[in-house]
C-alpha cells in the first residue's frame, strides 16, 4: 500500500509544480522587466564613462554628485523633510491610533473616517487645497486676520511646505497600520500590566510600544520610502532651492538634458531608500517566522 501511494503522491506533486510556477511567473517577469532591469541598467550607465568611444568603469559620476554643493544640499534637504515628516507622522498618528483602539462609540468611528479621508484624495488636489489654505492670503491667514492676529508667515514655498503636504497625505496609511498593530495587543496584556501596578504611561512605554514595534517599523519604513521619492508635494509646496531629489532628478533629466547625472541621482536615492527597504523586509520576514 505504501509503495503504491508514495509514487502517486510524487506524481500529484509533479503535476502541481508547473501550475505553481505559472502563477508566480507573471509577477516575477514584471518585477524583473520593470524593476530589476532598469536598476541594473542605471547602475551600469552610472558606473561607465565614455573614453575614446569605449565604455570604462568609473566612479566619476558619483564623485561629481558628491562634490557638487547643490546636489548635496538637495540630498540633505530630502533626508531632512523625510525624517521630519516620518517623525511627525509617528507623533500625530500614535495618539490617534491609541484613541481609536481604546475608545468605543460613534465619535471614534467619525474620527477614523476623517483621518482616513486623505487616502481617497489625489496628491495634486491636496497640494492645491493646501496652497489655498496655508498660502499667502489663504483661508488660514484670513481667519487669523479676522481674529486680530496679524504677521502670519506662510510655510508655502518654504522647507516646511512639503512637510505639511506629505504629513497630510501620510496620515491615513500610518494610522491604519498602527491601529491594526494595536488591535493585536490583547486587552488581557494591558489589564495584567495595570494589575501589577503600571499606570497609563508605563503601560504605553513598557507594554504597548514594544508589542506594536513591528507595526511601527512597517508603517514608518513604508512612509520613508514614499516620502524620500515624493515629487508632487515638494514640487508644488516646497522652495525652488534646495529641492527634493525627485524634483532635482526631473530637472536634471528634462531641463538640463543630463540623463546620466539624473540616473546617478536616482541610484543614490535608491540606495538611501534601500536602507528603509531592508528594514521593512527584515521586519516582514521576522513576523512570518514568529507566525504573527
Amino acid at each position: 500500500m505504501t509503495s503504491l501511494s508514495a509514487p502517486l503522491g510524487r506524481q500529484k506533486r509533479a503535476r502541481r509544480f508547473p501550475v505553481g510556477l505559472l502563477l508566480v511567473a507573471a509577477p516575477v517577469i514584471l518585477v524583473v522587466a520593470l524593476v530589476i532591469y532598469p536598476i541594473l541598467s542605471s547602475l551600469s550607465t552610472t558606473l561607465n564613462v565614455d573614453v575614446a568611444g569605449a565604455g570604462r568603469f568609473s566612479l566619476a559620476n558619483y564623485a561629481r554628485f558628491f562634490s557638487d554643493d547643490q546636489s548635496l544640499r538637495n540630498l540633505r534637504f530630502t533626508a531632512w523633510f523625510t525624517t521630519t515628516t516620518v517623525a511627525l507622522l509617528f507623533l500625530v498618528c500614535l495618539p490617534l491610533a491609541l484613541y481609536l483602539r481604546f475608545s468605543f462609540g460613534r465619535l471614534p468611528a467619525f474620527v477614523q473616517a476623517i483621518a482616513t479621508f486623505p487616502l481617497f484624495v489625489p496628491g495634486i488636489i491636496v497640494a492645491y487645497a493646501l496652497i489655498r489654505f496655508i498660502g499667502p492670503n489663504g483661508t488660514l491667514q484670513s481667519l487669523l486676520d479676522a481674529a486680530g492676529l496679524h504677521g502670519y508667515r506662510t510655510p508655502y514655498l518654504t522647507t516646511w511646505g512639503p512637510v505639511i503636504g506629505l504629513l497630510w497625505e501620510g496620515i491615513p496609511l500610518t494610522l491604519l497600520v498602527l491601529v491594526s498593530g494595536l488591535s493585536q495587543v490583547p486587552q488581557a496584556a494591558i489589564d495584567a500590566a495595570r494589575d501589577v501596578g503600571a499606570g497609563p504611561l508605563r503601560i504605553l512605554v513598557f507594554i504597548i510600544l514594544p508589542l506594536i514595534r513591528n507595526s511601527i517599523i512597517v508603517a514608518l519604513s513604508l512612509e520613508f520610502l514614499r516620502i524620500f521619492g515624493a515629487f508632487t508635494q515638494p514640487y508644488l509646496l516646497g522652495p525652488a532651492s534646495p529641492e527634493s531629489m525627485g524634483v532635482y532628478m526631473q530637472r536634471t533629466f528634462g531641463d538640463l538634458q543630463d540623463p546620466v547625472q539624473a540616473a546617478t541621482q536616482a541610484m543614490i536615492t535608491f540606495l538611501c531608500c534601500s536602507v528603509a527597504g531592508v528594514i521593512y523586509v527584515r521586519t516582514i520576514i521576522a513576523n512570518r517566522r514568529a507566525g504573527r
Binding site: P186, A188, A189, D191, D195, V196, P210, L211
Partner: peptide, 15 residues
C-alpha cells in the same frame, strides 16, 4: 494598579 490584589488571567496574558 492601586488595589492589593493580583489577578491570573484566562489566557495567561504574559508579555
Amino acid at each position: 494598579n492601586r488595589r492589593p490584589t493580583g489577578m491570573v488571567f484566562q489566557g495567561h496574558a504574559l508579555w
